[in-house]
Nucleic acid binder design. Sequence first.
DNA 1: AAGGAACCCAACCGCATTCAT
DNA 2: GATGAATGCGGTTGGGTTCCT
Length: 321
Amino acid sequence: MDGGSRRSSSRRKRGKEVESLRKGPWKAEEDEVLLSHVRRHGPCNWSSIRSNGLLQRTGKSCRLRWVNKLRPDLKNGCKFSAEEERVVIELQAEFGNKWARIATYLPGRTDNDVKNFWSSRQKRLARILHVSASSSRPQKNKRKILASCDAPRTVDIKRPVVEELSAKPEQGNSADQGYDPANLMPDFIYAAPLLAIPPTVFNSEILHPNFSIDGNLHKETQPHSSHHDFSNLQSRFPFGQDSQGFPQILDDPEYFNLIGPEAANSSQFSVDNVFLQSPGVGQCNTTNIDIDDATMQGPFLEDLPSCMPDQFEQLPSPSRW
DNA sequence: AAGGAACCCAACCGCATTCAT
DNA sequence: GATGAATGCGGTTGGGTTCCT
């Protein structure tokens, strides 16, 4: 067929297709026709399905249906596992919103799955931060637990965090479960990139060794030093390149050498200091940090609205986001 | 039990790229 | 090389479901 005749026949077809094109949810019969086409011709020539009068769907729609729902190797109706969540988070940090590329690392998952997963995660995070900061109404969702509550506060930062991430929440009212600081640290590690906290800030302010150790703030007499440079850390621990992921670095002693000798010498890390409490919030027993204190002023606080530090909430573990 | 918020996910749309003529 | 079709991808939307008060 030459270009001219192809164009004119294409115009004729376009006029016809507008009136007979079907949209919306797929019926089982349509799926069967599509599957039959793929069995015969393979997953290609999508447009021929309509041009042959098999379905009143665009080739694009047929392809999408096959890729997202009918492919035999899909994990349909199955929630993302903790491992899958971790992979998505790491790869998103590495590749950005390249969902199709990320999906190639997740057998049985489509770009749409990854995209939906990420999108709902982002919405949740945005809501947690924005709503709690702006709304005076009490939170309706029990699944969100304020970090500022009475509970034991010290967590062993060196314990394997992978178990914690894959641990399922106990059944029942979260208020009864209390606040489990052991789950908080790894969650915050993942929350940091999602909250757009710059890595250097995350490292120097969140994992700052002087925030730590015994639950009290050890004030520094010197500005935060270069040994907190996250780029150094990242080059040493190129998380995202394998399935082990970022959490594994917490089990590597070299990590603590990089973030600081104090932390390296301690097996304890106080989560109080991760969630900085502004003065006056004091209905809880977290460590209050003086925002006016020069040693506490850094990009972490500057990058956030002034009301933000007392608005942090514990994020549920990734499998609960 | 009802209503609303939050969540999940299928499917569409627009744009970019690749392929075929 | 130009053109249109086919394909691929990311963003968005809308409806159904679940959870909570």
